[in-house]
Amino acid sequence: MSRRKLAVWKFASCDGCQLTLLDCEDELLSIAGAIDIAYFPEASTTEVEGPYDLSLVEGSITTPHDAERIQTIREQSTTLVTIGACATAGGIQALRNWADVREFTSIVYAEPSFISTLDTSTAISEHVDVDFELRGCPISKAQLVELINAYLNDRRPYIPAHSVCMECKARGTPCIMVRDGVPCLGPVTHAGCGAICPAYDRGCYGCFGPSESANVEALAQWWKGLGVEDLDLVRALRTFNAYAPEFKEVSDRYA
């Protein structure tokens, strides 16, 4: 059987997620040995033509050109996996969805007329079918390796969709919200980071987006009891995964 072909694609994003693949260091040679890295401009100028067996897609759709390009990539890809908050929820650039992007371009660019951009930044799944979404800003190296590994072995990746709290409890971090009243998004945020922030006395920022069955409204009400102002609640929900439906619905309610 010939080796399967991997492609890595970039849309509106910071490159951090695809660089996670290069950051795999210890596993990188094993990955390169197990799958053909056919298209990955960040790593190699060699481009092997499609179709591709596995496409990793980073970034959100923000331009008319990208909205067309993702269709072509989908057609060329047997399995398409989005990597990171941009591709999965529209990223931090989805903040434009609540504003007038033409106003932004008029301030930022000397010749705004050269800029062809959409009014919104949207997730890849808004445009094409997505087979799996890898969460995070950036994604977790361990989860990326697990995803590729599971794909190569035709099994389901072991990537629990439960809350960050499960990771805090497993590493023995006393809940920062309970012991110190620090607002934390952990109870409604998808696990995967290993609960880093609460271990350093910071509330969870929600980098991995909503967990399965996230009850964001109930947490919002508790935060208000902790003295969090509506504006700060909205800011907390509108960061890396602002346009994830579970976060958006509640941030709109308090905006």
């Binding site: 809350s163 709290c165 499960m166 409890k169 967990s211 996230a214 009850n215 947490l219």
Partner: peptide, 9 residues
């Protein structure tokens, strides 16, 4: 259930 976060704590 309206209050429960299903966080598992």
């Amino acid at each position: 259930a309206e209050r429960c976060l299903t966080c598992g704590n």
